[in-house]
Simulated scan of single mutants.
Amino acid sequence: MSEHRRHQAVLQLLANRPFLSVHDLVAATGVSPATVRRDIEKLDAAGLSKKVHGGIAALEGQERRAVALPFIVNRDIATEAKRAIAKAAGQIVRDGSLIIIHAGSTCFHFGAHIADRNLRVFTNSMPLAAYLAENGTCQLTVGGGDLHREPGVLYDPQRAPDSFYGSQFFVGALGISSRGLLESHPLLVRFINEMVELANEVVVLVDSRKFAERPPNVALPLARVNRLITDDGLSDADAQMLEDQGVDYIIAETGQVAA
Score class of each variant (00 low, 15 high):
Ile40Arg: 01
Glu63Arg: 10
Val31Ala: 07
Ser97Cys: 14
Ala15Val: 07
Met195Phe: 08
His102Ile: 02
Ile251Cys: 05
Glu80Asp: 13
Leu182Asn: 00
Leu222Met: 11
Leu198Cys: 11
Gly96Phe: 14
Met241Cys: 03
Val218Lys: 08
Ala199Met: 01
Leu140Glu: 05
Gln62Ser: 15
Asn200Asp: 15
His4Ala: 10
Val203Asn: 00
Leu181Pro: 03
Leu98Ser: 08
Gly90Val: 09
Leu242Gly: 00
Gln62Asn: 04
Gly145Val: 05
Phe71Ser: 00
Asp244Lys: 06
His148Lys: 10
Val225Thr: 00
Lys51Leu: 03
Thr35Trp: 07
Gly54Thr: 02
Gly145Ile: 03
Gly144His: 06
Phe110Tyr: 10
Val206Trp: 00
Glu150Lys: 06
Ala219Val: 07
Val206Gln: 03
Ile40Trp: 01
Gly136Thr: 08
Pro33Met: 10
Glu80Met: 10
Arg224His: 13
Val204Glu: 01
Ser235Asn: 00
Phe71Tyr: 08
Gln8His: 08
Lys87Ile: 15
Thr230Glu: 07
Leu11Gly: 05
Lys87Asp: 07
Leu59Met: 09
Ser32Phe: 12
Arg149Gln: 15
Phe122Gln: 04
Asp248Gln: 14
Asn74Asp: 14
Arg224Thr: 11
Glu213Met: 14
Glu183His: 07
Asp24Asn: 09
Ala258Trp: 09
Asp207Lys: 00
Leu20Cys: 11
Arg159His: 12
Val67Lys: 03
Ser97Leu: 13
Val153Lys: 03
His148Val: 14
Gln12Asp: 15
Glu183Phe: 02
Ala237Ser: 10
Arg190Leu: 15
Ala86Trp: 02
Ser125Glu: 05
Ser2Asn: 05
Lys51Asp: 13
Ala259Thr: 13
Asn135Val: 12
Ala9His: 06
Arg190Ser: 13
Ile72His: 07
Leu242Pro: 00
Gly145Pro: 01
Val218Pro: 06
Ala112Trp: 03
Ala66Pro: 04
Gln256Ile: 11
Ala89Thr: 04
Pro215Lys: 02
